[in-house]
Amino acid sequence: MSEATTHRPTYRPGELEAEANAADNRNRWLLSLPALVIIVCAAAGPLLVMVVYSFLTPGDYGNVKWEFSLEGWIGTLVQRDIFDDTLMWADAHLSIFWRSLSLSLITTFLTLIFGVPTAWFIATQPPSRKQFWLFLVTVPFWTNLLVRTIAIQELIRSEGVINLVLLKIGIITEPIQMMFTDFAIGFGMTYVYLPLMVLPVYAAVDKLDFRLVEAAHDLYAGRWTAFRRVILPLIKPGIIAGSILVFVPSLGAYVTPRVLGGGKNLMFGNLIELQFGAGRNWPLGAALSLMLMAAVMVSLIFYVRVTSREQADG
């Protein structure tokens, strides 16, 4: 049965779809707009302004003069002798870069040593207990970083619990100076960033198909061989993710080195702050910030590359 049609609708091919898509796209952009505006105003946008500032001349009392200059960028690596203007390597900066890099690597290594077994332990618990252990690791992750750093500070101070106990037992006669050393920074960062290693490794172990491990054992592999040859390759994406998650914030750490490293043992983040405080060299600070950001971006791109290749392989 077909009713008499008063008018035959004619649409161009794709017309209705184009209308629907256009409306959909518009709605999606409109919905995203508030978040995008806020982030552009108070995160992404200022980074672009900083690029401009890195090419300006420092003002006499902080801030900048609007004159083009490459001094900010040059100053990141070399310094000018005050008297004869000769250029030489900025040893102070280089040693700070080196400290940042080495401490970040050490932190990553230490969190691996402690984090992987912890993640393994949690993931192999019975399901009922697993959630509890996971919760225990997650709570410090979300609790205040400054408070956790203060906890470490109080522990390793000259008058702190560790020194006190060691003195009481008689192992030492003088308190060990742990505060304001590279050790303090590394120790503190390992402590505060450890959950960042445990969580992704846990996720990887949790997904691990233990029949594969059983197959390895069945094929005469011992526990360590099975771990090295079967388990480790399978949980590698989680380990890489955890390493990046620890390495990146370590490289840009500010609070922990400031509290535990004091005024002498600076890291990259503290060097940047210095240029906006006592150093009064905003262009240099801007250039250093961009360098740090570039280093972080390289790590993240490396991470994305590796994980996407892992996924393609798997």
Partner: peptide
């Protein structure tokens, strides 16, 4: 949809940049 990647990238951008860098950029 056109621009989805841009929206993703922008929303996650604060996570990608070290806090100290965002902090001094905001200071400026």
């Amino acid at each position: 949809f056109p621009g989805r990647t841009i929206i993703y990238a922008l929303i996650n951008q604060p996570l990608m940049v070290p806090e100290i860098v965002t902090a001094v950029a905001l200071l400026i």
